[in-house]
Simulated assay, not measured.
Amino acid sequence: MQIEPTTAAEPLLPEGRFNGREAFEGLVRAALSAAARQGWRELVLSDPDFADWPLGERASIEALQAWSASGRRFVLLAQRFDVVERIHARFVPWRRMWDHIIECRAVRAEGSNAVPSAIWTPEWCAHRTDPERSRGVSGFDPRVRRELREAIDESWRAGRPAFPASTLGL
């Protein structure tokens, strides 16, 4: 399935192998833009800590803001969220504002519970199989999407709620 952009300036969703941090960041930006443009119902981001994701960029927040709507679901899965809070300053307030559509879980990295570095949607996915070098594959293949979702779901079940929108005290 080929997705056509609505304007010449909007990127197509990449398909195939990607290599390097710039390629990965471009892929994340393209995915967030496509989510807004196409109104995806669910968006799943999974990474050990999201340290090298462009989540704090103005363009990413604008795309997420455009995507946010009633009936949407945004899932964040990580081993730890302290990096998100520390380096993605624009993302944290957006997360607070849209708490009602966002679910966050943290997973201890033990054995087979390693959190995949991935973006999953019902139509497209990207999996960083080598996060250290930002290498991986993206595409529309239903089998690949299903296998990636199963890996994410396995980590999700092992996780616990994390990254609350607010901290309540007594």
Rank of each mutant, 00 (worst) to 15 (best):
S70M: 09
I101R: 14
M1H: 12
A114Y: 13
P122A: 06
R72F: 10
W120C: 05
V28D: 02
D153Y: 04
S166N: 08
D141A: 06
E132T: 12
F140P: 14
A114V: 12
V75C: 05
P142L: 01
R37N: 04
I119N: 04
R160A: 14
L170I: 10
S46P: 01
F140N: 15
D99S: 08
R108Q: 11
R73P: 05
A23W: 02
F163K: 00
S155E: 10
A109S: 11
A151G: 14
H127V: 12
R95W: 10
W94L: 01
R96A: 08
D52I: 06
P142E: 06
T129M: 06
P11M: 02
R143T: 13
P11N: 09
D49W: 01
S70W: 15
Q79E: 14
P14T: 11
P142F: 00
V137N: 06
I3C: 03
G111F: 03
V75F: 07
L64T: 10
E103Y: 14
F81S: 02
G71I: 08
P131M: 01
I3G: 03
E10C: 00
A118E: 02
E85D: 15
G26F: 02
L13W: 05
A9H: 12
A126P: 12
P93T: 05
H88E: 01
R160N: 12
R157D: 15
R41V: 01
A59V: 14
A165D: 09
E22D: 10
P142Q: 05
D82C: 03
D47A: 13
D49A: 08
A51V: 05
E10H: 07
D82R: 09
R80P: 04
W67I: 02
L27K: 08
A89H: 15
E25P: 00
A63S: 13
T7M: 04
A35P: 00
R143N: 07
T167I: 14
L45K: 10
R143M: 05
F91H: 06
A51P: 05
D82H: 12
R80I: 09
V28N: 04
M97L: 12
V107F: 05
D141I: 02
A36H: 11
A162S: 12
H127I: 07
F50H: 13
R108D: 15
N19I: 06
W94E: 03
E42K: 12
R90V: 00
S33E: 09
R17W: 02
L27A: 00
L12Q: 09
L148I: 07
W156L: 00
A158P: 03
E150S: 05
H127N: 13
R160W: 11
E10D: 09
L13K: 08
R108T: 13
L32Y: 11
L32Q: 11
A106F: 05
A66N: 08
Q2G: 03
S60C: 13
G26E: 11
S155D: 12
R58K: 14
Q2A: 07
G169S: 07
P5M: 08
C125L: 06
A109R: 14
A36N: 07
D141Q: 06
L27V: 04
R86K: 13
P11G: 00
F163V: 01
Q79A: 11
A63H: 15
A69V: 04
A51T: 12
E57H: 11
N19V: 10
V75W: 09
F163H: 04
A151P: 14
D130S: 03
